[in-house]
């Protein structure tokens, strides 16, 4: 009896403690979760609902169920006999965007990997400065950076002027408002996202493995592609995803450097909520974009899991 009572009191105290902890935790989490659920996640639900409604005359929606938005993505309804004809306009915008984002990812990898490697092999004190230099642009306004890029690749921009003064070209190269401009702009915008994760994985690289490679008669290329790159793979994959996803949904870059003519998904979606005012179709396009992003993330997660189980 006398032994039991303090024990149950203790158990009760621990129980009380646990309950208190749960309550405290719930209260602490409440504001952040409430804001994000209400302002970021609930709207996604609304977007799903909107994508199945009918567009209103002056923007917005009328509450009538319709799958037209998704049909419109692939087909055009003939105004005379209501038959559906395949329409490649929107599909081609998606394909263009995927192509540009993939190209920019590859470009950023070709530039970013050597840079990350270069930083990772610097003495420790210098690394921080280099990392700071790579990170800083990320924190400066993307719109302003893109505008700055526009200034230098314009027909009258500094690049053309210098090339003309040097006598390399006689008339300015038209870069602005082309796919090339968007491609350059995307690399420029998201390059830091490629360098940082690759750096993070190269920083831990054990150079005795590189030495072993050379000892076994490998040349530099072989060491690079058979020793260093496989070891940096997690960083490379992370970097590619971090460049590809924002590249796919880019708005500012195609808007400024593509001149609004070379559309990407992001501009196409924004337009539906502006000038051409088809909110349901814009919602559907946004959801298709999000589905693409989720597919990329899922494939990556599955590949990572398989890789882990293979190694384990």
């Amino acid at each position: 009896m006398s032994d039991r009572e303090p024990q149950s009191a203790l158990a009760a105290a621990i129980d009380q403690n646990k309950r208190n902890e749960r309550v405290t935790r719930a209260w602490l989490l409440a504001p952040a979760l409430a804001i994000i659920l209400a302002i970021s996640i609930l709207p996604l639900g609304i977007t799903v609902v909107y994508s199945f409604l009918t567009p209103g005359t002056y923007g917005g929606v009328t509450w009538e169920f319709s799958t037209d938005s998704y049909v419109q993505f692939l087909f055009q309804r003939d105004i005379f006999d209501d038959t559906l004809v395949f329409n490649s306009a929107y599909v081609s915008i998606f394909l263009r965007s995927i192509g540009l984002a993939l190209g920019a990812t590859l470009g950023a990898l070709i530039l970013g990997f050597p840079t990350a490697y270069f930083i990772a092999t610097k003495p420790r004190e210098q690394r921080n400065i280099w990392l700071f230099l790579i990170t800083l642009p990320f924190w400066t306004n993307l719109l302003i950076r893109t505008y700055a890029m526009l200034l230098i690749i314009r027909d009258e921009g500094i690049i053309n002027i210098m090339l003309m003064k040097a006598g390399i070209i006689s008339s300015p190269l038209t870069i602005l408002y082309t796919d090339t401009a968007v491609f350059i702009g995307l690399i420029y915008s998201f390059l830091p996202f490629m360098v940082l994760p690759i750096y993070a994985s190269l920083e831990k690289l054990d150079f005795s493995l590189v030495e072993a490679g050379y000892d076994l008669y490998a040349n530099r290329l072989k060491v690079l592609f058979h020793v260093i790159v496989p070891l940096a793979k997690p960083g490379i994959v992370a970097g590619c995803i971090l460049v590809f996803i924002p590249g796919l949904g880019a708005y500012i870059t195609p808007e400024l450097l593509g001149g609004g003519k070379k559309l990407m998904i992001g501009n196409m979606i924004a337009m539906q909520f502006g000038a051409s005012r088809n909110w349901p179709f814009g919602s559907a396009a946004a959801l298709i974009l999000m589905a693409l992003v989720i597919v990329v993330l899922l494939v990556n997660a599955l590949a990572a899991r398989r890789g882990a189980s293979n190694n384990g």
Partner: peptide, 8 residues
């Protein structure tokens, strides 16, 4: 993607 959050 920010554009999705924006329109949502």
């Amino acid at each position: 993607p920010e554009i999705v959050t924006a329109i949502a």
